[in-house]
Design a protein around this nucleic acid. Structure first.
Lengths: 350, 350
DNA sequence: TTGAAAGCGCTAACAT
DNA sequence: ATGTTAGCGCTTTCAA
């Protein structure tokens, strides 16, 4: 159908301003060696004609594409969308990433990629070949996928790795998982809790281990044992239920539980109800993520607030800086997380 | 930095297969006039080299960009993201739109545009000039914005208008707002309710009126009056609260309320509690949208389920069909909505 | 400081 | 049925 051409091109601007294409191009790209009066004349022509460069043409001639690719795990993301449990990870990514891209005149393209697939490399290379992005934002578990990291490193594309400290290239950013697990644990200890259980998350995500580490460190600092207080999950409600049952089924059960995400925290709340335990009087509960649902739970759940938007915004800034002048942070970027205390936390009974 | 060139281009494929560029191009685009054996040879070369066409180059040569722009209202979307109330409109759009785009080899680019801005036209034209999208998906309230619709119509870009029946170009799609309001009203009538209040939504959205119409029609069909049973809101919790107060503050108060979205329904629930009214025994409640939060309300709210993902997927299909062969549906597309009954609905007391 | 020429990867139009 | 030519809009050489 209707083959559309650019309505206003650099040629029109050049003609209108009475200069060469080159001068216009220089002005667009803020290059030196243009007299102020020329600048002025060109800018006026651009404004008058409503000219906006075609990113396709810019990319074609070897310049930037002004596109940043944000990659999420396909299965998990689609499952979250379908479940409609209120997980707003994607929204927070967009909030931070898309708006920050816009600040720099870039666009964020959101894509889903299968992590558990031998075609990952092909899939990713195809996206790169088709879009020619100037940078890529990786989220867990992709951030630690050696195949993905390898492709990006070899292609020499600046990329951020959210939730990873891995080596092998890219800019690592973490949301201070260890620190916030520690903070949550300390908050409970200060309330008088001594037996604080922890439900670990999917081991495929490095951050799961960091959270466990933070909890363990805080317990050790306070001279408290952790035996029998750690249970595993894969972040799902079902495995959270088993984990909570294990923890709460013991003779000497914990008076508080920290769960590695909201789903396992909600599962713990359910198990507590089933066992006739009152929250927070018999059991205090803190979760990770602070997605919308925890506010609507009864009682409302306390939670570590993951600064997703802020972290992705930082990632975008760093990617753009990297592709402009090759600068990357010397050390991993640590974005501090908050702890939101709600009704689910109280001193232990008795 | 590092000026990257396409690693594998159509030239490489042509050389590898021993044919001309054109033949490769024809195979890529499934054009006729290529012998099966040639097809075969080219496809093998493509697979062997891992070739993927650059969409920038494709667009440059006057072909498609394989990009579809999805436009949402900036203020509202950002406010929703920041509020973290669990609205998953954007996620459902992506679920339906992005996946359907992928089916066709397209990509969806999500953008925010200010509807209340005299630069709308410029903003939109800039996005079009930069990206050269093959189509645009409009959501409310953009779908009925004459400035936006005008630009798209003039630029001759296929576009879908979700939640609009407006004329003036584009493909209108609605989620059967009138029908579902009617269905919800009828469900309450069948339970024995006779005084059924309705909280209308933001008048800027056409669908607000359609929902009112559906309620009014169902009431009329049952021979029930609607005087004093309609209250206005702008979809916000605050205005929902006033609306509920107005409805429930009357001498002869309604025994059921249908709210035009989840926020106003939650507000009604709050007001009912404040007035000492039990839900559902003293007051039945049905909302629109069925976002995640309603499931977590106590009692869980019944809701009309807006088929957002399905509607956006349809929109993508229609846009692609339109730009391929110019075909557009003769009549507005109506995607049926569901009614999910939960604890908030019961027969009226007494 | 400015301009002219060449080419990015691909497709449309025109040969053959 | 296949190949050749020209050109999309822009930036990068290179020249003046």
């Amino acid at each position: 159908m209707a083959r559309r051409r650019q309505t206003v091109t650099i040629k029109h601007v050049a003609a209108d301003a009475g200069v060469s294409l080159q001068t216009v191009s220089r002005v667009i790209n803020n290059e030196p060696n243009v007299r102020p009066e020329m600048q002025e004349r060109v800018r006026e022509a651009i404004a008058r004609l409503g000219y906006v460069p075609s990113i396709a043409a810019q990319r074609m001639s070897g310049s930037r594409s002004y596109l940043i690719l944000a990659l999420n795990d396909r299965d998990r993301t689609i499952a979250d969308w379908r479940a409609r449990q209120g997980s707003d990870w994607v929204d927070q990514m967009l909030l931070g990433g898309m708006l920050q891209c816009a600040e720099h005149g870039y666009r964020m393209i959101f894509e889903l990629v299968d992590t558990h697939n031998d075609h990952v490399e092909r899939e990713l290379l195809a996206a790169i070949a088709a879009l020619q992005p100037d940078g890529v934002v990786l989220t867990p578990p992709h951030s630690d996928n050696p195949l993905i990291v390898g492709v990006l490193a070899r292609q020499n594309i600046p990329f951020a790795r959210i939730g990873s400290l891995g080596r092998g290239g890219g800019i690592p950013l973490i949301m201070d998982d260890e620190g916030s697990a520690r903070k949550a644990t300390q908050a409970l200890i200060e309330l008088g809790h001594r037996r604080i259980g922890f439900i670990a998350g999917n081991a495929e995500y490095s951050l799961s281990q960091w959270r466990v580490d933070g909890w363990r460190a805080a317990m050790a600092d306070a001279g408290l044992p952790t035996d029998g207080l750690l249970a595993a999950s894969d972040f799902s409600f079902a495995t959270g239920t088993s984990a909570a049952r294990t923890l709460l089924g013991q003779a000497e059960r914990p008076t508080a539980i920290i769960a590695s995400n909201d789903q396992t925290a909600l599962a713990s709340l359910d198990v507590a109800h089933a066992l006739g335990l009152a929250v927070p009087d018999d059991l205090s509960l803190i979760s990770f993520d602070n997605t919308p649902v925890v506010r609507f739970a009864r009682p409302a759940l306390s939670a570590v607030d993951q600064p997703v938007a802020e972290t992705v915004a930082r990632a975008v800034d760093l990617i753009i800086a990297a592709q402009r002048d090759g600068t990357v942070p010397a050390a991993p970027v640590v974005v501090p997380a908050g702890l939101v205390l709600r009704e689910s936390v109280a001193p232990p009974r008795g």
